[in-house]
């Protein structure tokens, strides 16, 4: 299965105002892997995620998703393969009801009504929110909004799931539910977050990004236990690994 691969080769990205957000990033994520991206504020995590589905195109370097190289022409095709869940659910959910929102993607893919209905019901069932279908997003709680955001992407059946700070603003129970949900998915996952315990539970591999460069790449157990590396990047040991913290 070669088509669930994300491949970055020397990707450089400069914002129009001259800020260099990525300064030559290379990595390869293979099928079914789940990868956490960590780093300080402003290190380039979000920019990296915006590249994955072609919202921003690299200034130089090469990105390929599966067998497709990311260009202006292949953007649409790539967006079908990569589902992105944004940090703020209020940006992600823009339709008047939950149902319409989840149906938005599949309808844009040109599916028949029956197929769209199936997909929407399946996606909402997966996240356990079928009974919210007719509600407007402003009647939902933060945790529900986050779950529905994920459903909107699941309904498109992407090969790759990219998420920006999925655990922010969630209460512990909702966060726990989300971890359970994500661990059930067999997709290739790429998650940018500051919540290191979350990464520890959901991901197997971890990339550390600093000033637009990847400074470490390894298994979660390797990287998230390396105190000096984490502290260099404005991070700290995951709380669950800190000893004697109650004293």
């Amino acid at each position: 299965m070669s088509h669930h691969i994300i491949d970055f080769k020397d990707v450089v990205f400069q914002y129009p105002d001259g800020t260099k957000a990525l300064k030559g990033v290379s990595f390869r994520i293979t099928h079914g892997e789940s990868v956490g991206i960590v780093g300080a504020n402003g290190a380039g995590k979000s920019t990296l995620l915006l590249q994955v589905n072609g919202y921003l195109l690299p200034s130089s370097g090469l990105i390929s998703i599966g067998d497709l190289e990311l260009t202006k022409k292949t953007r649409q095709e790539i967006r079908r393969k990569v589902g992105v869940v944004f940090q703020n659910p209020d940006d992600q959910l823009f339709m008047p009801t939950v149902y319409d929102d989840v149906a938005f993607g599949p309808l844009n893919l040109g599916m028949s009504t029956e197929k769209v209905t199936d997909r929407v019901n399946f996606a909402l069932q997966t996240i356990g929110c079928l009974d919210l279908a007719s509600k407007p997003p402003h009647h939902l709680s933060g945790g529900q909004k986050r779950a529905v955001s994920i459903a909107t992407v699941l309904a498109m059946e992407p090969d790759i799931l990219a998420m920006d700070e999925p655990s922010s603003n969630l209460d512990p129970k909702s966060r726990r539910d989300l971890i359970g949900l994500l661990n059930e998915f067999k997709h290739t996952k790429i998650i940018a977050s500051h919540d290191l315990d979350f990464i520890l539970e959901v991901c197997e591999r971890c990339l550390v990004i600093k000033n637009g460069l990847i400074v470490a790449d390894g298994t979660v157990s390797e990287i998230l236990t390396n105190q000096s590396l984490l502290e260099e990047n404005n991070l700290e040991l995951p709380l669950s690994l800190q000893k004697n913290r109650m004293r």
Binding site: Y55, V84, F86, D91, F94, F104, M156
Partner: peptide, 12 residues
């Protein structure tokens, strides 16, 4: 950001 979210889900 909203427009971006729309594009990501195939809005045309």
């Amino acid at each position: 950001r909203i427009y971006h979210a729309m594009l990501s889900r195939g809005f045309s």
